[in-house]
């Protein structure tokens, strides 16, 4: 009986967690991605405040829209940064050399991107609540924020991987991402507004169902397609 001298390939979940840990500890040291996203989110809210004259009456109808636009813009910033860091220093090639499944790399990157996005949201929501004296901490709304972010990041991670490999790089991501991710944003706005205005669940469930359907499709499909956008 001969024993293999090669160490066993790490399990899928271990590989995913390793990538997440790498991203989080890199971020913990540099803090460049999160700080940029957070400041940017604040600036977007500030601009909306004056552009839309967010008084009590207007806020009733536009809060959900303002929040999701802020998340989407800040999210693009984060996605671009997270993927161009990998591309710039050849880290992606290193990751690809690792004896793990390509989908584990996708999952790892998506998971850390999702964590960054959720941190930004966890910061933006209380700030918005504080500034405009609305209670955004409703379980329904938080669920929508989670579901919307999952769909956004699932597509965003794949498209950001593509965008950083093009000649125009960062400029490409919003152009590629927004038409594809539009259903997530629209359904999220619709569902968020429903929860904020205290509508019946029956009126919100349509948007929620579509959101869940989109999330499932756009986790499964990029998982299959990811290897096509990283192979050389």
């Amino acid at each position: 009986m001969t024993e293999s001298t090669r160490p066993p390939a790490p399990s899928f979940s271990k590989a995913v967690l390793a990538i997440v840990r790498k991203d989080l500890s890199a971020e913990l040291r540099s803090r460049e991605l999160l700080s940029a996203m957070l400041v940017f989110a604040l600036l977007v809210i500030l601009i909306f405040n004056f552009a839309l004259e967010l008084d009590v009456k207007v806020r009733e109808t536009v809060t959900a829209g303002v929040l999701w636009t802020t998340f989407a813009f800040a999210g693009t910033l984060g996605l671009n940064r997270s993927m161009s860091v990998e591309k710039d220093r050849g880290c992606l090639d290193g990751l690809l050399l690792a004896p793990v499944d390509r989908s584990a790399i996708y999952f790892g990157k998506a998971l850390s991107n999702l964590i960054f996005m959720l941190i930004v949201e966890a910061f933006t929501l209380p700030v918005y609540s504080l500034l405009y004296n609305v209670n955004l901490f409703q379980p329904g709304l938080l669920l929508v924020v989670l579901l919307g972010s999952i769909g956004y990041i699932a597509v965003g991670t794949l498209l950001a991987t593509m965008a950083v490999q093009t000649r125009t790089r960062d400029v490409m991501l919003p152009i590629l991402l927004f038409p594809i991710v539009l259903p997530v944003l629209l359904a999220s706005v619709k569902a968020s507004a429903g929860f904020l205005n205290g509508l019946d669940f029956a009126e919100i469930s349509g948007a929620l169902n579509l959101l869940i359907a989109y999330d499932l499709i756009f986790i499964a499909v990029p998982l299959m397609l990811f290897e096509y956008v990283v192979e050389e």
Partner: peptide, 9 residues
């Protein structure tokens, strides 16, 4: 890849 994503979305 992009046409596929578009076709689904």
């Amino acid at each position: 890849v992009y046409t596929l994503l578009g076709g689904l979305s």
